[in-house]
C-alpha cells in the first residue's frame, strides 16, 4: 500500500528540486541552446538560399552575356552589310558618272569630227572649182588644132594638178 501512496517528504523535495532545475536549466541551458540551434539553422538556411540566389544570378548573367554577344554579332553583320551596300552604291555611281563623261567626250569628239569634215569638204570643193577654172583658162589659151593635142593637154594638166 505504501507503494502507491505518495510520501509527503519526497513530494516536497521533488517539487522544490524540479522547480529549481526547471528555472536554472531553462535560463542557463535551454535558452542559449535553443537560441544557438535556431541561429545556426537560420544561418545555414540563409547560406543555402544565398548560394541558390548566386547560382540564379550567374545563370542570368550568362544569359545576359549571350544576349549581348548575339546583339554584337547582329550589329557587326548589319554594319558589314551597310558598308557593302554603300560601297556598291559608290562604285555604281562612279561607273555611271564615268560612262556619262565618256559619252560626253565621245559626243564632243564626234561633233568636232563632223565640223572638221565639213570644213575639209568645203575646201576640196573650193580647190576643185579653182582647178577647174584654171584648167579651163589654160585650155582656152592653147591652140586647139586637133583633138589629139587637146586631149594630150587635158591629160597633162590633170597630171600636173594632183588632186590635193
Amino acid at each position: 500500500m505504501d507503494l502507491i501512496l505518495p510520501g509527503f517528504g519526497l513530494l516536497f523535495w521533488q517539487t522544490v528540486i524540479f522547480v529549481l532545475v526547471l528555472i536554472i536549466l531553462g535560463r542557463f541551458a535551454w535558452k542559449p541552446i535553443m537560441k544557438a540551434l535556431n541561429e545556426r539553422e537560420r544561418v545555414i538556411e540563409d547560406a543555402l538560399s544565398a548560394a541558390e540566389k548566386a547560382k540564379e544570378e550567374m545563370k542570368k548573367l550568362q544569359a545576359d552575356n549571350e544576349a549581348l554577344l548575339q546583339q554584337a554579332r547582329q550589329e557587326r553583320d548589319k554594319i558589314l552589310k551597310d558598308a557593302q551596300s554603300s560601297a556598291n552604291h559608290i562604285i555604281s555611281e562612279a561607273r555611271d558618272k564615268a560612262t556619262e563623261e565618256a559619252n560626253r567626250i565621245i559626243e564632243s569628239a564626234r561633233a568636232l569630227i563632223i565640223t572638221e569634215k565639213n570644213a575639209a569638204l568645203a575646201e576640196v570643193k573650193n580647190t576643185a572649182s579653182a582647178l577647174s577654172l584654171e584648167i579651163a583658162e589654160k585650155l582656152l589659151k592653147y591652140n586647139l588644132s586637133n583633138d589629139e593635142s587637146q586631149k594630150r593637154l587635158v591629160q597633162e594638166y590633170l597630171k600636173e594638178s594632183k588632186l590635193n
Binding site: P6, L10, L11, F18
Partner: peptide, 8 residues
C-alpha cells in the same frame, strides 16, 4: 516512486 511521478 509515485510521489515523483505525481509531482511531474
Amino acid at each position: 516512486n509515485i510521489a515523483v511521478t505525481m509531482c511531474l
